[in-house]
Design a protein around this nucleic acid. Structure first.
Length: 585
DNA sequence: GCCGTTTTCGGCCCGACTGTTTTCAGTCG
């Protein structure tokens, strides 16, 4: 059974996504292709490991039927399924890269392979430079030029997606530039508005008439490197920073319909349109129309998203939930929760100062915390075992706690505590003795070393750490770093169940490359009945702003203000710590 | 390949833009 354990949802999801591409290359029925894409997305969004789910339960997942279920069984047994293996042999690996080049899809990739034997990015570049592609049927000089640019961009880009936080900063910069050029009301949409972990390209909507004038001006913004396409309603550009941005020009009267349409997700939109059809409407980016209104003259709703959802008999769905994960059913029953927002947050618990590996002093941290509008902050540092971070032993913890108290006196508007990020050793032991732990304000347990242990071993290590009554919060549980480090193998079910017995809270870490717990597991934690706490893991005062990152993850998980301990007052939070320590032992 | 309160067969969301073509296929979101 060792094979079954390593078969994660993301592993399976990747197989089905690749299968979809291979089927497209094979000129298969497009709806079959779509079915595999849908299955890949559905599996990616599950918190429970699908490989160990009973088949009756698997068949209840929307988008998964008998066909995919039987493939799943095969994957669970041997890591792949036969039709997939067969197709993989039929097409060289390099073709999959070629499909991802801007302007090339499966059809063109297949044609290039059949007619010129192009099976790698290198060959593609060579043939394009030699001018051999332009002579093929359906190709031309322009496509050839775009291929050369596309291959260059693909090779320069290190990863094809950027972190949410970075995308948000870039988007805000463009919005400023568009605004200062005098164009009305630009907003971002797409996966950025939905708060996805990583962002492929940035979608921006802008108020204006589709007369071509605005589009022309937008393609000349100073941050633009090259223009991919320009039409009266849409401009696609690549920024100097390497990110693709699609800007749409939308008349005010259909702004809501467009915002909804371009926010997505695609799957959410498909379901939304199906609901519209059942009610005798049709929905597109211009509005919601009666089907009988053939020329789409008079929209039922179009100006705002709220109007559109209302006209469909649905509660408004916040963008972060629009992933076709059951939100439409909730909206129909009007049970979409009021999601947590930055204004619910009264403080942070997990951060670092210049006493260990942070950059800022207590005073700088406190000043920033006040400017965030918080009522309290627990300021933390690493413990000793984390040699690289000059961690604290108990004596230094106690000493610096006094220093913090002195610093706090200068900031009467904010209440403070001294937290400590307790290293969970390889054995599952903690870095301080029990007597020392009892004298700390707040203990945040975290794994920092030997992250690649086997699942059983790593799970046992964390379970053991949790038996300490003073371990209050579990930080960045999976240890993953997006794009750099895979999550550790752990058994979430066992860890969550044990944590529930000890009333241990789980952190959503707001570092843009951590976002850990993920939205999927934060949702599961809530369903298990666990408490959740948002943190910044700041290594400078400025980074306290990452609280906004953690809020986005929490919103995607469907959490309310009440679900996060950050919404407690200082006294209530202190009370929670002492109560849980009393009962946990 | 999935799905079903008009259905177990025959549908499957919809439009913009480009570049190739003389009316449309491919790509993208």
């Amino acid at each position: 059974m060792s094979l079954g354990k390593s078969i994660t949802n993301s592993y399976i999801s990747d197989i089905f996504a690749e299968m979809a591409v291979l089927l497209e290359l094979a000129h298969e029925n497009p709806f079959r292709v779509r079915a595999y894409q849908k299955a890949a997305l559905a599996i990616e969004g599950l918190s429970e490991n699908i490989a160990s789910m009973p088949v009756e339960k698997i068949l209840k997942i929307p988008g998964i039927g008998k066909g995919i279920a039987s493939h799943l069984e095969e994957i669970a047994g041997k890591g792949a399924f036969s039709e997939f293996e067969k197709l993989k042999k039929r097409f060289p690996k390099g073709l999959l890269d070629i499909v991802n080049v801007q302007g090339i899809g499966a059809k063109r990739a297949r044609a290039l392979y059949d007619k010129l034997g192009i099976d790698s990015m290198e060959k593609l570049m060579k043939k394009a430079m030699a001018g051999e592609i332009r002579n093929l049927d359906g190709f031309g000089e322009k496509i050839e030029q775009n291929i050369i640019l596309g291959v260059k961009e693909a090779s320069e880009r290190k990863t094809d997606r950027i972190l949410y936080w970075n995308a948000r900063l870039i988007a805000e910069e463009i919005l400023r530039e568009i605004r200062s050029s005098g164009f009305g009301n630009p907003v971002y949409a797409g996966s950025l508005r939905r708060g996805k972990e990583t962002i492929g390209d940035i979608d921006i909507l802008c108020n204006g008439r589709p007369d071509g004038v605005l589009a022309e001006k937008l393609s000349k913004l100073s941050c633009v490197e090259r223009t991919l396409s320009t039409g009266p309603t849409k401009v696609s550009v690549i920024l100097k920073k390497g990110v693709q941005v699609d800007i749409r020009i939308i008349p005010e009267e259909s702004f809501g319909a467009a915002l909804c349409y371009f926010t997505g997700s695609k799957e959410h939109n498909v379901l939304l349109r199906e609901i519209a059809l059942k009610k005798g409407f049709t929905l597109n980016e211009y509005g919601l129309f009666r089907i009988s209104d053939k020329k789409q003259k008079k929209p039922i709703a179009s100006g705002t998203e709220e109007e559109i959802y209302r006209a469909l008999g649905l509660q408004f769905i916040p963008p972060e939930l629009r992933e076709a994960r059951g939100e439409l059913e909730l909206a129909a029953k009007k049970t979409i929760p009021e999601l947590v927002s930055a204004s619910d947050v009264k403080g942070d618990i997990h951060n670092h100062t210049n006493l260990t590996d942070g950059k800022s002093s207590f005073e700088e941290m406190l000043e920033k915390a006040v400017s965030m509008g918080w009522e309290w902050i627990f300021i933390g540092d690493h413990t000793l075992s984390l040699g690289v971070a000059h961690g604290l032993d108990y004596a230094r913890y106690a000493e610096t706690k006094k220093t913090l108290e002195k610093a706090s006196a200068k900031f009467p508007r904010i209440k403070t505590g001294r937290s400590i990020e307790m290293d969970i050793l390889k054995t599952g032991d903690l870095d301080f003795s029990h007597e020392e732990l009892e004298k700390t304000d707040l203990v945040i347990g975290a794994v920092h070393s030997s992250l690649r242990m086997k699942e059983e071993e790593m799970t046992r290590r964390i379970l053991k750490a949790m038996t300490s009554p003073c371990l209050d919060v579990m930080a960045h549980l999976s240890g993953r770093m997006i794009g750099k480090r895979e999550p550790s193998n752990i058994n979430y079910d066992m860890i969550f169940e044990e944590a529930l017995r000890h009333d241990i809270a789980f952190e959503i870490n707001g570092q843009p490359d951590r976002q850990d717990l993920t939205d999927v597991y934060a949702r599961k934690a809530k369903e298990t009945g666990l408490k959740i706490i948002l943190s910044t893991d700041s290594h400078s005062a400025q980074q306290l702003e990452y609280m906004n990152m953690a809020v986005v993850v929490a919103r995607r998980a469907g959490l309310t203000g009440k679900d996060v301990l950050n919404s407690l007052s200082y006294e209530e939070f202190r009370e929670w710590i002492s109560e849980r320590r009393k009962t946990a032992g």
